[in-house]
Design a protein around this nucleic acid. Sequence first.
RNA 1: GCGCCCGUAGCUCAAUUGGAUAGAGCAUCUGACUACGAAUCAGAAGGCUGGAGGUUCGAGUCCUUCCGGGCGCGCCA
Length: 592
Amino acid sequence: MNIFATFKSRIDAVIGELAAEGALPAGLDLARVAAEPPREASHGDVTTNAAMVLAKPAGKAPKEIANLLVARLKKVADVTDASVAGPGFINLKLNDEIWRSGLRDVLTTGTSYGDGAPGQHGVINVEYVSANPTGPMHVGHARGAVVGDALARLLAKAGFTVTKEYYINDAGGQVDHVARALRARYLQALGKLSEEDVQGMLQRKEIMYGGDYLVPVAEALKARDGDKWAAATDDKVWIPVLRDFTVAYMMKAVKEDLEALGVHHDVFSSEKALVDAGKVDDALKFLENAGLTYTGVLEPPKGKTPDDWEPRPQLLFKATQFGDEVDRPVKKSDGSWTYFAGDIAYHKDKVDRGFNNLVNIWGADHGGYVKRVQAALKALTAGKGALDVQLCQMVRVLNNGEPVKMSKRAGTFVTLRDLLDEVGKDVVRFIMLTRKNDAPLDFDYAKVMEKSRENPVFYVQYAHARGRSVFRLAKEMFPAADLSDGGLAKADLARLTDPDEIGVLRTIANWPRTVEGAALAHEPHRLAFYMYELASQFHGLWNKGNEETHLRFLQPEDQSVSCARLALVRGVGLVIASGLAVFGVEPVEEMR
RNA sequence: GCGCCCGUAGCUCAAUUGGAUAGAGCAUCUGACUACGAAUCAGAAGGCUGGAGGUUCGAGUCCUUCCGGGCGCGCCA
């Protein structure tokens, strides 16, 4: 039960009554009326802006409306007081019992507390990672993977039906380049080239990928095929073979990395399969029939004409009709499709599979690409499809403040494996979600393992572990008590009276709002801040008991109050566990 | 040059998406351990939200413009 949603509907009902009696105009739009927790706790328990947002449409002063509403709201269930404040806010004070009943909800629903009604928001497709199968996953991919996965879990929790998807860029020039690089490493494995030869080829740009991660791939190819491809001269023959071999090898590695990170996709879509099935041709035919493609010549970008610029007629998509700055090429000069053409086909494919609500998680370096894909989606769906692109900024990897250098070209970059080996899956996942994704993130090996309040993953886990340790002790202290969630739900929660105890219950009551808000905004990181806040309150309460012993959770002489407080401790634990589940992080039973 | 993102306490970041007196942590200062694990907690101090205009009951949030930073800008993906 979402307390704020409950009061939103009660407030709406009061407005409806007043309208029915003629005190307010009928048919007011209540969409902007909100029932929220006030920022300032001293303002009460629930605040509403109703009087202010209705002032203009109702043609009355905010305070006048507020006074009308306050008189009625005082009589609404659970309200102990209502008052007008500031420019027309209405502050409601509630019976503490409402927070206690919120805690009972947590105990009876467990970690599904805060879930939206399944399917209430329809279907949605989240595409993330989509790393090129040309090398191992690095930190940048890891951030996208975690953000996408957490967002998908969050959306599911809020009541979306979610499909998690990965787009494999296994067509086009990059995978051919990898095939050529693999050929060099293969010849090296056969003893026909030296390391110096390979580095020379790299410097002369004869091959584009030089990382030694291709060495084991070459060994594997040699193990399978011997020297079968050593003498092959026709690159139409050997490139497809080596390319497919690399792609398969890399995708296997990528999937293993994702598995180790706890990321699972429902669907893997292959660009090559799309091309082979003729879907790119179909999609472009679709746009052509709609009159949205033409052959034209693009102007060079203003103020920055590339050295080798030459005007060239190309097949273009009329992206400007859908909000993009320029029309975008869909065909290369050699007649093959551009990457964008493939992406048009891919997004059409998603739409054809029934998805009109799409989210893509990309690296920030693809920011310039967003508008054209959104334009394409509008063109493909007659404006009905929605595509939100969440861009992930850089991750700076540090060790005790020292930057760890990354360069994919030189083959030295921080891989996802490095991260996992260094700090573990749960820490990687949590830290990646402690910033909004469009802000750069510092990932410091040393700091994320620190056991201090500065380290949010530790701080939140510590709160959970502390709660568990109370239960271990409680079982010894009250062997006969029913400490199951169901048993605690029956505890006499009226024994929870301290303002800080009620404060924790307030935060717990805010969890469903937080989940829904974060889901609709596509911002999973909000849950990290929520969990930190809840942990902070819990630690505060714990420590208060150090000085005021009557506030300690366990009172050996008073099982009734102990059980009420255990219910609170359990509620905190369940909400934290529920947030960590969205993050794909295991709550710990004890700190080691 | 153009487009997108960003600019909040000395530092790292929040701010319920347009709400009330802009909040946390670190660092600084002051306190609390014969403990429910102090790996923590309580308190103090710290601000012209980059600058200037505008929109309205109300702006860190929206619009315009300038300054500063990041990313990108036709046959890479």
